[in-house]
Design a protein around this nucleic acid. Structure first.
Lengths: 225, 225
DNA sequence: GTCCTCAGGTCCTCTGAGGAGTTGTACTCT
DNA sequence: AGAGTACAACTCCTCAGAGGACCTGAGGAC
């Protein structure tokens, strides 16, 4: 006989889950003003105090913000953890430096563990990056390539941590990096470094991957410092 | 003229702050059963629903846990972020691998940035580690040494992330690592690797620091995998 | 155009009541 | 004496009503 522990879910928790779903699924995008207390509790099918407690939980998570006299608003589609706040408070250069630490190791591991699928994806991303003309498009293709490198390391934890860092950097450092108008010369060097990185991973050469990753990231780090 | 925006603090927020203080300051250590709703609201000087909402916020933070019919208990002295949960859910080997990524770079940076104070602290920690006889004492001295290496990198973000990882690893991997009875031979090698690491940092040799850090951590990673 | 007044909507707070779950104790039965 | 049961006291959960504090926008006064 297999006994499964009975899991008690209070109404508050259910209400929290429903609110999370509404926000996470995009039915209530960031900026949405929630219905009033009475209406909201009617929608959720619970009493007013219960829905208030659910809202309070999401406020603690950083997903909602209540403004006295005005309303309650969605401020984030995902829970903003203490960790995110730390990263956002930290100096950009420091955050970036940790990102480098993660990505260097990711590149090394990717060279050791890449699968044929990884290789195909990396080559495609590299081609997309080369094809991307300028500005946001290039930045997007760039991020995608880096993300794939990390994915090729086949470490879910590393993947998630890296994603968190990317998000934090995108929020705080986007302008810094975008404002830095790069010379064509520098662009060439960076493009070459990316090619070298992919090649090193394809070749299964961890040391070369480490070197290429550094070559990719160090210039930006130098600008930030 | 500098104008500071008036900051409105609701009673709930004040109650949350007070609860956080009580827990964070250790007046209510982990395991403590909180007073009942009526008593708690009296203590906080607010109404029952208000204190309930404050408690709900701390439940969302992972610091409290309410058990229907039994009571409300302190389960964590610090807010448990989504990030912590990720680390605890992740496979130990994956988490450890990210730790390696952080520490390798930390070693490299430490070699570049160490101050005389760092050097003195590292030497003292190394001596303490050599003096530590066995078991928990050695583990403690070991962790302290690693922590100092990271500190010598002078990157607050890196420091905090590393601490988070250490905490998660201590929670989930302690038994795994402790259970691994090491041979005296292995002990010697590890001790030597630690000496080499400190020496590399003192010498300001980043490449040697990277190599020594790897030599320190790779064996454990191999055991975990 | 600027400022004031005000009404309507909102969240905030308190309170009383009843429901549901847990736990320890006293009691009963074997 | 030991096992099992019944129960009382305690807990958190949920609901609902009422009044307060606050914000916003409309409309009028200057």
């Amino acid at each position: 006989m297999s006994v499964r522990a009975v899991h008690h879910t209070s109404l508050v928790e259910k209400a929290v889950a429903e609110l999370r779903r509404l926000i996470g699924d995009g039915e209530w995008p960031v900026g949405t003003k929630l219905p009033g207390e009475v209406e909201l509790s009617r929608l959720l099918g619970v009493g007013r105090s219960t829905s208030r407690e659910a809202v309070r939980a999401l406020i603690a998570d950083g997903q909602l913000r209540a403004q006295h006299g005005s309303g309650t608003y969605v401020v984030s589609a995902t829970p903003v953890s203490e960790f995110d706040r730390t990263l956002r408070r930290g100096r950009v250069a420091d955050v970036y430096e940790v990102r480098v630490a993660l990505e260097v190791e990711a590149g090394r591991l990717a060279a050791l563990r890449r699968t044929p699928d990884d290789i195909a994806a990396l080559r495609a991303a590299l081609a997309a990056r080369d094809a991307a003309s300028t500005g946001p498009e290039l930045a997007e293709a760039d991020v995608e390539l880096h993300r794939l490198v990390v994915r090729a390391a086949h470490n879910p934890v590393l993947d998630e941590v890296f994603t968190t860092f990317l998000g934090a950097l995108r929020a705080t450092a986007a302008s810094v990096i975008a404002d830095d108008r790069r010379s064509p010369d520098q662009d060439d060097r960076t493009a070459n470094a990316h090619r070298a990185l992919v090649q090193a991973i394809v070749d299964g050469d961890p040391d070369a991957a480490v070197a290429a990753t550094r070559q990719n990231l160090d210039p930006t780090l130098a600008i930030l410092r």
